[in-house]
């Protein structure tokens, strides 16, 4: 009882202290400071919540669709890399090089090419999302318990049967843990794409707040974006637990 009390009480006390200090510092900011008191943030949140919900929805939709595209491409690519050694190796290298280009640098030409609409946002979000999935899945396939392949061989299963019945379920935990990186990456990708030019979205709102020197709104948008990012991670964490319940109790691919 007292141990669990301390486990929660100490972090809570810490955050309370941080917020109180932040509040005091924010109420009487030094000239030119961008510090905004938490109460001001809450007030902005209350005043602008409808607009914030709308723009968040737009950005989340872009990120979500981009994430789906990125996931499909990544899974297909990982299977090609797994199935066809030579072509796969070459493709994998291209994927690596593509990812070496900073998202922000590739967002500009993509927006110029695909325009200010959804297309460019989806492309950037997908580009940001596919990579962690490809890397995780490919390495999961490569480090798979070799006995699983031996089992497939003894049972005389073809490649696709082996993939579907043995290997795909075995790499599912790796897929879900890659989603926890790819999800936020898609979200950030969508925001960056919006900076390059868009009508509406969290990124657009962020830029407008910055140019108008609306510091409270700037911080509020940041707060919302951070909260959404956290929720995305949480969503995939829960999804992973629900979808691969065996992973917690039986570690690894096929210990037993």
């Amino acid at each position: 009882m007292s141990r669990s009390f301390r486990r929660y009480a100490i972090p809570i006390a810490f955050y309370v202290v941080v917020i109180v200090v932040w509040q005091i510092a924010g109420q009487s900011p030094a000239p030119g400071s961008v510090l905004v008191a938490p109460t001001v943030l809450l007030q902005t949140l209350a005043e602008r919540w409808q607009a914030l919900v709308l723009v968040s929805g737009v950005t989340l939709a872009e990120a979500g669709a981009g994430f789906l595209i990125g996931t499909v491409v990544a899974i297909a690519l990982s299977i090609v890399v797994d199935r066809f050694r030579l072509i796969g190796e070459a493709l994998y290298r291209i994927a690596l090089v593509l990812y070496a280009i900073p998202v922000i640098a590739i967002a500009a030409p993509l927006t110029a090419w695909l325009g200010l609409g959804m297309g460019s946002k989806l492309a950037v979000a997908a580009l940001a999302a596919y990579f962690p999935i490809v890397v995780n899945l490919t390495s999961a396939f490569r480090t798979l318990d070799p006995r699983i392949d031996e089992l497939g061989r003894v049972l005389a299963l073809g490649y696709w049967r082996r993939l579907w019945s043995l290997r795909a379920p075995a790499v599912l935990p790796a897929l879900f843990s890659s989603f926890k990186i790819a999800g936020p990456a898609a979200f950030i990708g969508a925001i960056i794409a919006e900076w390059m030019g868009a009508e509406i979205g969290l990124g657009v709102m962020l830029l407008q707040a910055m140019f108008n020197f609306n510091v409270p709104l700037l911080w509020t948008v940041l707060l919302v974006a951070t909260a959404l990012n956290g929720l995305i991670v949480l969503l995939f964490e829960i999804l992973g637990r629900v979808s691969v319940p065996w992973h917690q109790s039986a570690k690894g691919g096929a210990a037993r």
């Binding site: 049967r161 019945s165 096929a254």
Partner: peptide, 28 residues
Amino acid sequence: GEFGFVFQDPVLLPWRSAVANVELPLQA
């Protein structure tokens, strides 16, 4: 399909129940 193989470790598929593990070769 003339072989049955028992490995050093059981190598059961953790996402399948006991009976579903036994069914695997038939399913294949």
